[in-house]
Design a protein around this nucleic acid. Structure first.
Lengths: 217, 217
DNA sequence: TAGATTGTTAATCGATTAACAATC
DNA sequence: TAGATTGTTAATCGATTAACAATC
């Protein structure tokens, strides 16, 4: 995956966090927030927060801080949440179900309009009002409906095939839950969610913690 | 969450990747691998790979490289995958189902032995041979069965309550899928999987890409 | 032995933090 | 105006990369 700007991924991955924390502030009717206050909430340093935000513009006001609502809106724009993304889900298993039913994504502009599987048994069933279709129809569907993001919830062995079809159809981004490094053209965005890697990290940290306890004794 | 060693999280998060890549090599009957070859497969530099591995010991041999099987086994040990972790899942919705049915975790030593929910309708149902129990039984179950890891698949609003009960019961780690920063004692490991944040990153990168295309014209 | 490749130290690079002038 | 807090530059810290002696 090629990058197109000099904003570091470390900064990019903090943006959704800022967005979430600001949402919470707004829910609590807080209108104004300083980098110091944000620091307390987020755990990042105030300095880092000001640096991060300044990558995108001067959203604050000296002596005042940031207008929570405005900042929230601006970060939403930076994240591209002011748009509509049409998505398809490949794989109607449990994970596909979970993603399809997670209504929060809809609020942020992500709309799943197609779900695909190879299993004849589930084809024709409805999932969150969307009929599950056979994977044979995927490429054409992606083309005809101008799908932006493909969500891969297939088993590992089928994930590269799914990616290939999605790309032929013209998706620009892939959200991949299969534990595989997909081969895709440079111009296609891939974001991997690797649950095993995440769980193994827990395991590592538990072991590390235990070993340090033994040492202390 | 407190850390107990001076191994950086950057290194820790690469370990499961090494483990996965080595598994693939073994599946392809490759017995021996150099840091240079690993570099090609993983995308990390050979230098970084040697540095990373040397945090834990000298697993290689000069002039030869690494024995793939041995290295795989050693990293497994480092990750703590040579043990059995008993887990419970809180929240028997789609995500809870997906996690419960993901058999791969079992192979790595993670065994789910309890699933809990508040919804009376699902209590008593079986999920992957485990009867879904009421959350009221959670604390005692965790205590009696010496559960190590709690997996939170509840809605956001219930996640902190779930964490509190798990901690009272004595879990040492929490794998949290709710978009919330749980408040837990320092000694408890928390690993968050935040799907929204991951999806928003896709969205950001798509927008960035598009903007750079406009500029080029 | 000669060639290959590690383990490890030193150099570089990038990200985070500190500091403070600008300014609301 | 005085106080507060940003935006931004400079300093520090940590992670990555390069280099090479050790050694199989």
């Amino acid at each position: 995956m090629e990058r197109f700007s000099n904003i570091s991924m470390a900064v990019v991955r903090r943006l959704p966090k800022y967005y979430r924390y600001l949402e919470e502030l707004l829910n609590n009717d807080i209108k104004r927030v300083s980098s110091q206050e944000l620091s307390k909430i987020t755990g990042f340093t105030a300095s880092q927060i000001r640096q991060d935000l300044n990558c995108f513009g001067g959203f604050g006001q000296q002596g005042y801080g940031y207008n929570a609502e405005e900042l929230h809106k601006e970060i939403g724009k930076i994240l591209g949440l002011d748009r509509l993304y049409k998505t398809v889900i490949i794989g109607a298993g449990n994970l596909g179900h979970a993603i399809a039913n997670y209504s929060n994504f809809g609020k942020s502009g992500f709309k799943t309009i197609g779900i695909f599987d190879v299993n004849e048994k589930v084809i024709g069933e409805k999932l969150n009002d969307i009929v599950i279709m056979h994977i044979d129809k995927l490429e054409e569907f992606v083309k005809e409906n101008n799908i932006t993001i493909g969500i891969i919830c297939t088993p590992k062995a089928y994930s590269q095939d799914a990616a290939d079809i999605l790309i032929k159809g013209g998706v620009q981004g892939i959200w991949n839950f299969a534990p595989v490094d997909l081969k895709v053209p440079d111009s296609v965005i891939v974001e991997n969610v690797n649950l095993s890697e995440s769980l193994f990290t827990v395991s590592y940290l538990l072991k590390e913690r235990e070993e340090s306890n033994i040492k202390k004794k």
